[in-house]
């Protein structure tokens, strides 16, 4: 019974950790499938986390916070577009510039505006955060732990953004594989010349892809500061943007495998939290750091072709120029 509760709670933690990863990884998928490296996810999420928390703190509305988070993130994505699509700058450099700049800008603005050492005020008021929604009959379900606890802890008790992230995966799969826009998006990431020859604007498509990427990464960042925690703190993304990118690669740039990779990475995180300082039978104390490093090791192994093969979109990272 105790073990059962532990498993359910670990799975619930997995869902909470996976949500921003799924949002960011799908965001990255739109960018990378269109041929723009999604290294900027970290900066977009962090920027959105700050904007959302700041606006929510001032306005008292989590929804306005979400809007601000998405707007900030889209603006950063379009800035990357301006540098790399319009002016054919290096995509890796543009993304790293955004990531570093935002890592400093959040705490800088936070200090100047709120005077709290680079944080935003605690979001305590009603409606300032996306809080857990309780489904009907949760208390009754708890009385019958199996399967009631699954219902109470996994299906119910999540905030709105979690359900949004869950819906996003089939939706993005449909957009990518079943719509004209999705077809063109994938084409522009594989062979932009062909898209151009067909009379469709490569630049326009890549900007649209980046805008979608920014919007979704904005939701992911908003989740971090207004749902998972109550306010912005320095470096609160803590590499989640890079982890989402790893999940995207591990998912071979496809929606459902990417979801699987996010859940796997989130599960290792949840397990690491559970195992902190515990001794397992036969194994002894498992160093938490090894579990934390596991997603990165797995991604490297995949990229190396030792566990399956990940083939990136062919035109990724290459600025498109009509002359060549």
């Amino acid at each position: 019974m105790e073990n059962y509760t532990l498993v359910v709670l670990t799975l619930a933690a997995t869902i909470r950790v996976a949500t921003p990863l799924v949002l960011a990884a799908i965001a990255g998928m739109f960018s990378e499938r269109a041929g723009v490296i999604a290294l900027g996810l970290e900066g977009m999420m962090l920027g959105a986390a700050f904007a959302a928390a700041a606006v929510s703190a001032v306005s008292g509305s989590a929804w306005l916070g979400l809007g601000a988070g998405m707007a900030a993130s889209v603006a950063l994505a379009l800035l990357i577009g301006f540098a790399t699509v319009t002016h054919r700058g290096n995509q890796v450099i543009a993304a790293m510039a955004i990531n570093i700049m935002i890592a400093g800008l959040g705490p800088t603005l936070g200090l100047a505006w709120f005077g709290l050492g680079g944080q935003t005020p605690q979001l305590e008021g009603a409606g300032q955060r996306f809080t857990a929604l309780a489904w009907p009959g949760v208390e009754a379900a708890r009385a019958h732990p199996f399967p009631g606890l699954l219902y109470a802890e996994l299906l119910s008790g999540q905030n709105l953004i979690v359900y949004l992230a869950a819906l996003l995966v089939p939706l993005s799969a449909w957009v990518l594989y079943r719509t004209r826009f999705g077809l063109r998006l994938r084409a522009v990431g594989e062979n932009p010349l062909a898209v151009d020859t067909a009379g469709i604007s490569v630049t326009g498509l890549r900007y649209q892809a980046l805008a979608i990427c920014g919007a979704l990464a904005g939701v992911a960042g908003t989740y971090l500061s207004t749902a998972a925690s109550a306010g912005f703190s320095r470096d609160m993304t803590a590499g989640k943007g890079y982890l989402a990118l790893a999940a995207l690669i591990f998912g071979k740039w496809k929606p459902y495998p990417t979801l699987g990779a996010c859940l796997l990475f989130a599960f290792t995180d949840a397990v690491a939290a559970q195992l902190q300082g515990r001794s397992l039978p036969f194994v002894g104390v498992v160093p938490v750091q090894f579990i934390i490093a596991l997603p990165y090791v797995l991604t490297v192994l995949l990229l190396a072709g030792f566990v399956g093969k990940a083939v990136a979109p062919a035109a990724i990272g290459v600025p498109y120029s009509k002359e060549k």
């Binding site: 990357i80 301006f82 540098a83 790399t84 002016h87 700058g89 290096n90 450099i93 543009a94 790293m96 510039a97 955004i98 990531n99 570093i100 700049m101 935002i102 890592a103 400093g104 800008l105 800088t108």
Partner: peptide, 13 residues
């Protein structure tokens, strides 16, 4: 922030 802006202007832009 300044470091990021320098990378942005000297590199990407």
């Amino acid at each position: 922030v300044i470091q990021g802006l320098v990378i942005l202007f000297c590199g990407a832009l």
